[in-house]
Structures are given as C-alpha cells and as structure tokens.
Amino acid sequence: MRAPIGNFDDARPAVDCLGLLPPPVADAVRGRRGDVSVEQLIYVDTDPEIADTAVFVEHYGQELLDESANCVVVAGKRGGESTLAACVVLSSTRIDVNGVVRRQLGARKASFASMDTATGETGMEYGGITPIGLPADWPLLVDSAVVDTEWVLIGSGRRRGKLILPGKAFAGLPNAVLVEGLGVGLS
C-alpha cells in the first residue's frame, strides 16, 4: 500500500497494525464508527528518533508540514477545578492556549499539561499523543483548518509510527469541537 501523503516505505491499514498501537488507540481503531471507514486510517512505520516535527518533515517530506497535525494535552483551571482537554492544530501553526483554548474551556487559566499528566491520563507516549483513543470525557478542540486538509498525518500514540486519515475524520471524533483560529501562525 502507498500512503496518500509523504514518503513512507511501510504503509498499512491501521486495523492491521493494532499490536503496534497503545491499547486506547488500538481500541478506538477497532471500534471506529462514523463517516470515515476504518480502512481509511493508515499506519506508517517511522523512526522514533526523528518523531519531532522539524526533523520528521526534513526526513519524510517538507510538504508534510502542511499535512501534519499536532495533538497537545492542555489543562484549564478555574476556581480549584482543573479540566483536561486535547487540541489539534496543523504542525505549521501553534495552539492559542492563553486565548482561544482558555475561552473554549471557560477557564481562568490554561496551560500545557505536564508530560506525566499527558502520558498518564492518555496511556500514550509523549511526542506521539493522538486524538484517536483519548479519554471519553475530554473535550477535543480541533482547528477547522485540520478538517479542511485532505489527508492529515498525526501521532499513533507512540513515538514510532504515525497515522494518516482524511481531515474530515477529525470532525467525527468523540467530543470534537471545531474551533476557528485555534492554530495561529508561527512567529
């Protein structure tokens, strides 16, 4: 199988690679419902040593910068209460945590969750967190530009391997909220 984007040697349907995914991601792929069929979720094997965006796109194709998305765990705080959420933006942008995210969560303060919190709560590896298989009660804020992208590369839940899926699939993920302007240009 050839991946629809990028320059990958090993691309397979994600449903055929469940053993390579952490349990919450494998369970979500196995139980996939919605407008996008499970066959459209593609797993590509990648080197975990070059999982960070800048090095990754240099190796697998510069065009992936506009076809990749980052999923980041954030914590919103208000009056002693903390709410965890995930945000998905294109890799060519950054998340507006102190503006858009804070307002969306109705929080007084918002920040990136600590690595221990992000990995402990998701069951995924830091640097590979994906919106597929997140805790069921979390809000998932998705920049509308992600949904408008034909094919999007995201983490697989581990630093080794990535998932590719149609951008429109993000709108159908559990608790997804499309947010215009969630991702802002890099300075």
Rank of each mutant, 00 (worst) to 15 (best):
D143G: 07
A3M: 04
V142M: 13
A3I: 00
G155H: 00
F112I: 14
A85M: 04
A3Q: 03
G167T: 10
A176T: 11
I42E: 08
G167Y: 11
L140S: 15
L153V: 08
V38Y: 05
E67F: 11
G183W: 12
L182Q: 14
M124K: 04
I5C: 08
T46L: 01
S111Q: 10
D9P: 01
P4H: 08
R12M: 00
Y126P: 10
G181N: 14
E67W: 11
R94P: 04
M124N: 08
W151I: 06
V184K: 12
V72F: 02
R12D: 06
L20V: 00
S144Y: 00
V152P: 12
E39G: 05
S111G: 10
G61S: 12
N98V: 02
S91G: 15
R2D: 13
V36C: 10
V74H: 05
D96T: 09
F170L: 12
A107Q: 02
I5S: 03
P139S: 10
P131W: 09
L153M: 13
F8A: 10
L84G: 03
R94C: 00
A171G: 02
A169I: 12
L182M: 14
G34L: 08
A169L: 09
F56S: 05
G133I: 03
G19V: 00
M115Q: 15
R94F: 02
G76P: 01
S187Y: 08
D52A: 11
E58S: 14
D16G: 01
G167Q: 12
G185C: 11
H59M: 07
P22Q: 06
V177N: 10
W138L: 05
E81D: 12
I95M: 11
T53E: 08
G128Q: 03
L134R: 01
T117P: 10
V177R: 15
